[in-house]
Amino acid sequence: METKLIISPSPHIHSGDSIEKKMYGVLIALIPAFIVSLVFFGLGALVVTLVSVFSCVLFEYLIQRFLLKEKTSISDGSAVITGVLLAFNLPSNLPIWIIIIGALVAIGIGKLTFGGLGRNIFNPALVGRVFLLISFPAQMTVWPEPGFFPMTYLDATTGATTLNMIGNHFGTIPDYTSLLLGKMRGSLGEVSAVALLLGFIFMLLRKIIQWYIPVFILLTVFLFTGIMNWINPAEYASPVIHLLSGGLLLGAVFMATDYVTSPVTKGGMIIYAVGIGIITSVIRLWGAYPEGVSFAILIMNAVTPLLNNYVKPERYGIRK
C-alpha cells in the first residue's frame, strides 16, 4: 500500500521549543539563588526546599490523578518551579507541616482549581505564601540568622528582616556588601541580589523572559522610594536599600514574570510592572506589613486579563 502524503497548513517546521524547555530554563536560573541560600541558611534551606518541591509535585500528581481524573502534567516542570519559588519565599526554619499546607494551597487552590497550568489567574507559589503569612504570622515572620553552612533547622537563632528594621526604626541595617551577597535575615531565596541578577541575565540570554517586567518594577520602586527618601531622609530609607532588601528582586525577576499570570504584550507588561512597583512601595512605606511584593504581584495578577484584553499594540505602520 502506498503511504499517504501528509497535508497540513504551513508552517511545516517548528523551533522545537517546548513548555519543558522553558520551565527547566527557569529552574536553572534559580540555581545561584539556591546555592547562596544553602551557604547562609544551611540545612534549613535544604529541608524547606526539598519538602516544598516534593509536596508540590506530589499534590499535583495526586489531585490530577485521583480527584480530576486527567492526565498528570508533573513532567512539564511547572510544579517543581512552584515548589522552589514557594520555598524561596519561606523562612528556613519553618516546620515541615506548615510547608506542606502551603504546597497544598499553592497547587490545589492556586493552580488546579482554575484548570492547571495556563489557566490559573494568580501565581500559585504566591497564593501559598500569602496563605501561610496570614494563617501563621508568628512562624512566618521570624527569620534565622545567616551563617556559613549552619547545620541548624528549627533551632536556628532568629531576628528581624532589614525591611522590618527600617520600617520600625530599630537595629542596624546590613552594609551594602551583605545586601548584595545576601548575608542577612530573610526568606531563603530572596536574600542574594547578585544570585538573582545572575538568574535574570541567564533567562534574558536564553530568551525565556523579556526584560520589561523586572526592569520596570525595579525602576518604579527605585523612583518612588527615592522621591520619598529625598523628601524626608529621616523617615524613609534610601532607595538602594529598598531595591536590595526583601523579596523585591526575587519577586520582580521570578514571580512577576510568571508567564501565565503576566500580560502578553509589551504595553501590558509595562503597566503591570509599574503597578507592582507602586503597590509594593506603598505597602512598604505605609502599610502594616513591612514587605509588600507578594500582595502587589497578586493584585496585579488579577488585573492581567484586563490588560490582555485592552492593551493592544498600535497597528503596524501607524505612528502617532
Partner: peptide, 24 residues
C-alpha cells in the same frame, strides 16, 4: 513533518514578540 500535539497556552507572549506586524 508531523506536528506535535498542541497543548494549553501558557501565555508566554513569544508569539506576540516574534510577530512582524505587532499582532497578538
Amino acid at each position: 513533518s508531523m506536528r506535535k500535539t498542541s497543548r494549553v497556552c501558557i501565555r508566554c507572549g513569544q508569539c506576540a514578540n516574534v510577530c512582524p506586524l505587532k499582532l497578538i
